[in-house]
C-alpha cells in the first residue's frame, strides 16, 4: 500500500521533530552538571572542588552572618544551602540586593582552610515579586524555606 506523498511527508516531518526534541533533551540532561552556573556548598564539598580553581559558589546569605571588617570595604559572610555552609570573604562593592536571608552567587576560589575568597559578588533573587508591605507581613522563615527548597529542587 503506497502512502500519499503528503502523508509520507507528514510522517517524516513528525519523526524528525521527535528526533530533534529527543536529541535536545538528551543534550540538556548530559549537560546538566556542566551547565550549572554555580556550586552549592553541599555540591562543592561532594565534588571536592580544588583549592584555587576559579568557581562560583551560590546559596543563601546566612542570617546574621554579615560582618564588616575594620577597613570598611572587606566583608565576611556565610553562604548556606541549608545542608552545608561556607564562610566567604570579599573586598569590594556588593550589589544593592546583597542582603542576609537572600540569594547570592560569589565568584572566586576556595582556600586551603575550606573558606572561600570572592573576587565578585552577584545577587540572586527568587521569582516572587511583592510590594514591601506584603513582604513585611510574611514570615521570614517561610521565605528561607521556600528558597532552600528551590535551590535543592534545581539539582
Amino acid at each position: 500500500m503506497a502512502l500519499k506523498a503528503k502523508n509520507q511527508r507528514l510522517i517524516l516531518a513528525l519523526l524528525a521533530v521527535v528526533a530533534i526534541v529527543g536529541a535536545a533533551l538528551l543534550a540538556m540532561s548530559a549537560l546538566k552538571d556542566q551547565a550549572a552556573y554555580f556550586y552549592t556548598p553541599a555540591d562543592a564539598k561532594k565534588d571536592h572542588v580544588e583549592v584555587g580553581r576559579a568557581v562560583r559558589l551560590g546559596g543563601m546569605v546566612q542570617k546574621g552572618s554579615i560582618q564588616r571588617e575594620a577597613d570598611g570595604v572587606t566583608i565576611r559572610f556565610v553562604v548556606t544551602d541549608n545542608v552545608e555552609t561556607v564562610p566567604v570573604r570579599f573586598t569590594g562593592i556588593v550589589p544593592d540586593l546583597f542582603k542576609e536571608d537572600s540569594g547570592v552567587v560569589a565568584e572566586g576560589s576556595f582556600q586551603p582552610d575550606g573558606s572561600f575568597v570572592a573576587t565578585n559578588i552577584l545577587a540572586k533573587h527568587d521569582e516572587r515579586y511583592m510590594p514591601p508591605q506584603v513582604a513585611g507581613e510574611m514570615h521570614k522563615t517561610e521565605s528561607l524555606d521556600a528558597n532552600g527548597a528551590q535551590q535543592k529542587g534545581t539539582k
Partner: peptide, 16 residues
C-alpha cells in the same frame, strides 16, 4: 524548550 526549562534544569543566576 531549552530556554523554557533552563531555569529549572540548570542552576542559573536568572530566577525561576
Amino acid at each position: 524548550p531549552i530556554i523554557h526549562y533552563s531555569v529549572e534544569w540548570w542552576r542559573t543566576l536568572h530566577q525561576g
